[in-house]
Design a protein around this nucleic acid. Sequence first.
DNA 1: GATTTTGTACTCGGATAGGAAGTGTCCGAGTACACATGG
DNA 2: CCATGTGTACTCGGACACTTCCTATCCGAGTACAAAATC
Lengths: 166, 166
Amino acid sequence: MKLSEGVEQAIHCVAMLSQLSEDGVLSAAALAEFHGVKTSYLLKHLQALSGAGVLRTLPGPKGGYRLARAPQSISLLDILLAVEGPEPAFRCQEIRQRGPNPLPVKPRGPCQINAAMLRAEQSYRAELRRTSIADVLTEVAAKDEDGAIEARGCAFLAVHERRQGG
Amino acid sequence: MKLSEGVEQAIHCVAMLSQLSEDGVLSAAALAEFHGVKTSYLLKHLQALSGAGVLRTLPGPKGGYRLARAPQSISLLDILLAVEGPEPAFRCQEIRQRGPNPLPVKPRGPCQINAAMLRAEQSYRAELRRTSIADVLTEVAAKDEDGAIEARGCAFLAVHERRQGG
DNA sequence: GATTTTGTACTCGGATAGGAAGTGTCCGAGTACACATGG
DNA sequence: CCATGTGTACTCGGACACTTCCTATCCGAGTACAAAATC
């Protein structure tokens, strides 16, 4: 029950991309440098986000990544599913039907243990679904009384953001 | 975000152990045979459950495992934590403080991204905490209209259960 | 025959190999800019 | 001087090694029963 580190990196990247201008993009190298992570590894997750329709990519020099839609409509669940895949954490192996004396007939309903675990996971996903990147940024801004976090992000964007002027 | 197969096996084993008499025990070999899984691997998780205080062990011949407390007071969360460990799935690496230009001062509060992910996980755990093994068995019995599942369990227990007579 | 002693068989417990998935790295396809060249 | 063609540098994209954790396995410690020897 461990999430890969890519999830955290992906969320931070999406949060950062939310703060650039409408026509701006940010390269994977810049994102990796800002977060102090390996570019090659981050690329894998950025590609996953791009494939999932969360990010939009712009090839070529002056290229990079930007959000595919507004931060209000990007949930943490979208990012999680893009990076970790859609399959649930608990995968019922139907061990009821295994062993030397399995259930003679195929059980009518699903395994109740599986149902209970999936119920919990639905609760987990529901919480992530109702939390958008915009919400997270709002919380960050609320706690960022001295503006240090915002200042850091702005300073970095001022240097590395690429405007598609025209 | 994948749970190990041991979690499912552990839950099924605890459910089975809930159905034997007060002074009965079941060996790991029997549990493994019933569920069609490898004994050696199951032992690892049974030991984890034992170490977590969910199961109680009885050594020697005629030995085996039994519940350490009533099924009503054993939650799915207890089993999950015993098998997977207590640390949360999302582990914040505090990448805010990494990179070439980290936050100059240690952030006042925790990372809001971490907070949001942990909030979701709390929801997940809360759901598992309020679901006891007894609840699961109740649901199973409710769906088991023809009694096939119960009959299968009883037949197996009749052969493999060991009573500590006296 | 009853008791004690010994031996054995069975259990759990922890330490030890193998394999899948996450982590980290590489090279290739594509595009925009810059420069050189020709008109 | 302007337009065009070409070259280069930079980007993302997917395919390839390495490490960690899950999976699978083995051997050792401990206990209860059973049998044998002794009183």
